[in-house]
Design a protein around this nucleic acid. Structure first.
Lengths: 156, 156
DNA sequence: GGAAATAATTAGCTTAGCTAATTATGGCTC
DNA sequence: GAGCCATAATTAGCTAAGCTAATTATTTCC
């Protein structure tokens, strides 16, 4: 562990600025999501389902930090829209697995592409050195956040 | 504008990773907000009100990317909780200004401090060089996002 | 001065958060 | 093996928060 000349005030200031940047980025990208035709909660849940593969309702609720009844409802809506299916879990008949349909998967990938392209259009104005710095910083941030690698899924 | 050896695919990949990092950070910090006692939409609106000072309902709705009736309701709830006041706007009698109470301001600052301290606790595991890289990258990101400096307020 | 535009609010609907209650299944102890 | 407790999902009821439509009051423009 390297020596750290930064005092706690500066570390907090850096945390503050990182926090602000994250908010700013996501606020910027939020506008792109209306084109998916589903709301934030459904899109977020769909993202987990697509990236994690079939997942129990319980685990999905946990990943989204909501209770099971809430997630049951969100899944209802996704199912009605033809974006996910509910499957019986052979290992545990109390459980149900939620799986994305091809339609759901396509919708999610399209939405994500839209966000990424939009953000890239902002990053384009930076030079090579700046982009390189962002790349390095992202590695550091990823490392810092790796306290619990159990759920490593990003969502919109 | 410096020469840029990065092709569009790599720029998109960087955007994708920046996007993911932003999501990851905010998802991490979200858990701290329940201690404020108000929900995400109210906390976000309160943050704008506190940092921007008294603001019209219309502008607040715009800043939060919701319609006026929605924001009217959110402000109703904040007012009931004693966190904001509605004032007549002397310049335009159609308008109403929303101002944070001392109680609202205190709640917001406490919540923000909680988030920042939590994030700082993760950043603590990084060394000086890594922190410096994050600092530089944040400058670059800030520059990239500065297309519309009109609303430069960060919210939870 | 009058018509059109604008700001805020209310009503009605849907989505999404919670807790409480219920039903079926799984695990553990005797 | 039986019974009890824990667990997973769903439903019901409530509140919060998103939208559109409608209304009222004020401002702006011709």
């Amino acid at each position: 562990m390297a020596r750290r000349p930064r005092n706690n005030g500066s570390l907090q200031e850096l945390a503050d600025r990182l926090h602000s940047a994250a908010i700013h980025i996501l606020r910027l990208l939020r506008g792109q999501d209306s084109k998916t035709g589903i709301g934030p909660a459904q899109l977020s849940a769909l993202s987990v389902i697509v990236f994690a593969g079939p997942i129990s309702l319980k685990d999905l609720a946990g990943a989204e930090q909501v209770k099971a009844p809430t997630m049951s409802r969100i899944v209802d809506a996704l199912q009605r829209a033809g974006l996910v299916n509910r499957l019986a879990d052979r290992q545990d008949r109390r459980a149900v697995l939620i799986r994305a349909t091809p339609k759901g998967t396509a919708l999610l990938h399209k939405g994500r592409k839209r966000r990424v392209e939009f953000l890239a259009s902002y990053l384009e104005r930076l030079n090579y050195g700046e982009l390189k710095e962002i790349e390095k910083a992202l590695k550091a941030v990823q490392e810092a956040l790796q306290r619990s690698p159990s759920v490593n899924i990003d969502r919109p």
